[in-house]
């Protein structure tokens, strides 16, 4: 792990907002120290006003730290060169409403300096991936919030970034889209990509994250691997096929050995997300015509490059 490239290095970074008279108004970040290495999915968590968005803006060079040293991909965040390897999905995706989805992506491909043929291939694959291929020629102004978010995701992945910054990626998305984003995050991590995501949906981070950082009042209060931070060594869970009451009673006697401590036996339930997705999948199989976003078709080929060979080996 330690040989992996340091994607983000943050040393004593503080950010103070001043008023017109130069007096400190808000201390949004206070002496942040952390490192994020290649191939990890990091959840940036915290209540409103904790400093998550400020940190993301500083990572993108939109805001400048008041003090401390910050390196993104070894460069200053304001360095345009570093941005060639960064993908960014903003919380509020704002695009030109009078352009089509395809034109929007072509514009971003130009800004990224992608060769035109390569750009068109990627755009087709991405539109298919985010389920917008059927409405790629519709104006973005006609899109719902969720559809814009999908387009934002496609935009963020256009340059096949090494570092992906996702600000509330699942906010406003339908459960199908949420699952697709989570699947995508997993795929990208397998390819060695680094992902930083901020969200209020803790379950999302738990599903796909490796590490978390919890900010509060501009301070980093907790950071580490999710399984280490969340594991409860004083309890265990056993999962097995359904058995008779008699067998459960015998197991209880063996496991707690006459001690007076809690022992709970229940039937596990599916998550609502799993149940919803299975219903949608069945409905989708009946080929009902829809005017909005469709279910995405897996992960774009260029984002999976090298992955199949790796798995086969």
């Amino acid at each position: 792990m330690s040989e992996k490239e340091i994607m983000i290095s943050c040393r004593g970074v503080s950010k103070v907002f001043y008023n017109f008279w130069g007096q400190a108004r808000v201390k949004a970040l206070d002496g942040l120290d952390f490192e994020i290495r290649q191939g990890t999915v990091t959840g940036l968590l915290g209540p409103n006003g904790a400093g998550k968005s400020t940190l993301i803006k500083i990572l993108l060079g939109h805001l400048y730290p008041t003090s401390g040293d910050l390196r993104v991909l070894g460069e200053s965040p304001r360095d345009v060169k570093a941005k060639e390897r960064i993908g960014y999905l903003p919380e509020r995706t704002s695009f030109y409403t009078n352009l089509t989805a395809r034109e929007t992506l072509i514009f971003f491909a130009d800004l990224l300096g992608l060769e035109r043929r390569e750009a068109m291939t990627r755009i087709s694959q991405l539109l298919k991936m985010v389920g917008l291929d059927n409405i790629g020629r519709r104006l973005v102004g006609e899109f719902s919030h969720g559809m814009r978010k999908r387009l934002g995701l496609a935009q963020a992945l256009l340059n096949d970034p090494d570092l992906l910054l996702l600000d509330e990626p699942t906010a406003g998305m339908d459960p199908v889209g949420c699952r697709e984003i989570k699947d995508l995050i997993v795929t990208l991590r397998e390819r060695g990509k680094t992902i930083v995501l901020t969200t209020h949906l803790l379950a999302d981070v738990q599903d796909v994250g490796d590490t978390i950082m919890i900010l509060y009042g501009g301070h980093l209060h907790a950071a580490g691997k999710i399984e280490e931070l969340l594991s409860r060594p004083e309890e265990i869970t056993i999962r097995c096929p359904s058995v008779s009451e008699d067998k459960i009673e015998r197991a209880r006697k063996i496991l707690i050995d006459g001690k007076d401590c809690p022992f709970e036996v229940t039937h596990p339930i599916r998550t609502l997300e799993d149940y919803f997705l299975s219903v949608v999948q069945e409905a989708g199989a009946s080929n009902i015509e829809i005017s909005g976003a469709r279910r995405g078709e897996g992960v774009a080929q260029y984002l999976r490059n090298g992955l199949e060979e790796e798995k086969n080996n």
Binding site: H62, V80, K81, K83, I86, P90, S94, L111, L112, G113
Partner: peptide, 13 residues
Amino acid sequence: ERRFHTVSAAPVH
């Protein structure tokens, strides 16, 4: 309308 935020996150001066 914050389009500038998204656009300037791209490698463009």
